[in-house]
Design a binder for these strands. Structure first.
Length: 474
RNA sequence: CGGGAAGUAGCACAACUUGGCAGUGCGCGUGGUUUGGGACCAUGAGGUUGCAGGUUCAAAUCCUGUCUUCCCGACCA
């Protein structure tokens, strides 16, 4: 039974993706170019992501804050790498009411400038450090080509900005936040990620270095899923964030930033979902269970109520589909919306003292005795699903990860079944650009502390410096 | 931003070539029968044909502009 509204992902992956977004009511297009309406189903996923990450941020000593949305031009331009990096995609406000502004202001594409300016007024002694703030907000980047969740002009995200007394402490923060993202992806989103450092060419504008987590989608295209940047003193020098250190000398603070966005929803879709609709890992699903009554006898009603309460008491989120639709319709609806477990309760089963469970990941139907501990059973099922999704994604990534020693192999792979390419690199941008000529293959990240697979750069044959993961990106 | 395609009811589309009452299916309302994989019968509602301008007795249809979307590139999270 194939969902009619969804194009098969093996036939046309791009079309499949937008079909899922629409069929599962995650988002719809608006009349504002490149901006989407995130619908309740999509927003609920974002809220779950926020709750989970926010908790992890707070547990590691971060506080939330809210910065202005507008950035005056002079403030934006203080750090030249940043403005050069973002200039092409910044939107400017030049008029307020009927008055032309003397100084135009940009709508934040990212808030390093505002945080830095603010921090400069906040810090005077090493005793004031560290400062570890985060904000949940929207940002605007004037993208040319847009796709729901993966790349829209306005998107929701979280940006953490911290300043520290020492280089070491800031670098530890950079690493720790990357680990938090990795943990969130692997444990909650059930998406295995590769971690590493971006090359000079691919790093964030203004950063000393950028750490990234990279995930592989069903079609072998990679998605930069979250990044953590170490700034050193670049911004603190540009924005004059100085403090008296322990030797009573003036010193510039050491800074980091890190972010993740609604793009994660796109990743979630492209890793787990199938031709029948969305598939959500239980730990991130706003509703973990759909309870579907069949028929409307008193017997069924009572049992439905009982199961709902039992799940609720066990901390499992569920809803009862009491709409007047036919059971078949409700099954399909729960499925397309990606609800991890469906419980079907009907008179036929009840008379035999039975209850039916259906897993969304495998679509397997399981009939069980009513004597089981339902909430315990569901909890076990949810964790099986969570693990299964992760393992499937991991296996796929492993199947699509290739070690390459020459460009012919890379070309062959990228033209047939793309994925992650592991190959040695000399460190020159020239070789990165050469690689890009093969279907747009770019460096995803440098793997550190990995055994080198060759002595020579795969492109130029000169001495290799790094083991790099390459891929086609979204 | 280049190359291509498209926009008609909530959704998918037809009518456009050759200008002449804006239609079909799904969905939606009402009444009834149903209910274990997207139920059935009856009946009804729903439109400034993306927007603006032009040609014409007459425009969904022809022309111009503009906005939005999709696909392929370039650019970027």
């Amino acid at each position: 039974m194939k969902n009619k509204a969804i194009t098969s992902r093996d036939v046309d992956f791009a079309k499949w993706y937008t079909d899922i977004v629409r069929a599962a009511h995650l988002a719809s297009y608006s009349n504002v170019k490149g901006c989407i309406v995130i619908e309740p189903n999509g927003y609920a996923i974002w809220e779950r992501m926020q709750q989970t990450l926010d908790k992890m941020f707070k547990e590691t000593g971060h506080k939330n804050i809210c910065m202005p949305m507008l950035i005056p031009e002079n403030l934006m331009k203080k750090e030249s790498d940043l403005i050069n990096g973002f200039a092409p995609e910044v939107a400017w406000v030049t008029q307020g009411g009927d008055k032309k502004l003397e100084e135009r202001m940009c709508i934040r594409p990212t808030s390093e400038t505002l945080f830095s300016d603010y921090y400069s007024t906040l810090v005077s002694s090493y005793r004031d450090l560290p400062i570890k703030y985060n904000q949940w907000c929207n940002v605007l980047r004037w993208e040319k080509e847009t796709r729901p969740f993966l790349r829209s002009r306005e998107f929701l995200w979280q940006e953490g900005h911290t300043i520290h007394e020492t280089k070491e402490e800031a670098e530890n923060e950079t690493k720790m936040m990357l680990e938090i993202y990795k943990k969130f992806f692997e444990e909650y989103l059930a998406i295995p990620v590769i971690t590493g450092k971006k090359t000079e060419k691919e790093k964030f504008a203004g950063a000393e270095y950028t750490l990234t987590i990279e995930a592989l989608m069903y079609n072998g295209v990679s998605l930069q899923s979250a990044t953590s940047h170490y700034f050193g003193q670049k911004f603190s020098k540009a924005y004059d964030i100085k403090f008296s250190n322990r030797n009573n000398e003036q010193e510039y603070a050491y800074q980091t930033s890190w972010g993740s966005s609604t793009r994660m929803i796109g990743g979630l879709i492209m890793v787990h979902s199938d031709d029948n609709g969305l598939v959500l890992p239980p730990k991130i699903a706003p509703n973990q269970v759909a309870i579907i009554p069949i028929g409307n006898s008193e017997l069924v009603k009572v049992k439905v109520e009982e199961i709902y309460n039992e799940l609720n008491n066990a901390g499992i989120t569920s809803y009862v589909d009491n709409s007047e639709k036919s059971p078949g319709f409700k099954f399909a609806e729960a499925e397309v919306n990606g609800i991890p477990v469906r419980i079907e309760i009907g008179e036929r089963d009840l008379n035999e003292n039975k209850i039916t469970f259906v897993r969304r990941d495998t679509r397997e139907k399981i009939v069980e005795s009513l004597n089981i501990d339902v909430s315990k059973y569901v909890n076990e099922l949810l964790s099986k699903i969570q693990n299964n999704l992760y393992n499937n994604a991991l296996k796929r990534r492993e199947d699509l990860t290739y070690e390459c020693h020459n460009l012919e192999d890379v070309e062959k792979i990228m033209n047939t079944k793309p994925g992650f390419i592991k190959a040695m690199w000399c460190g020159s941008e020239e070789c990165e650009l050469k690689m890009k000529e093969i279907k747009g293959t770019k460096s995803r990240c440098i793997l550190e502390n990995h055994k080198h697979i060759d002595d020579k750069c795969i492109v130029c044959g000169k001495e290799a410096k790094h083991l790099v993961v390459w891929g086609i990106q979204y």
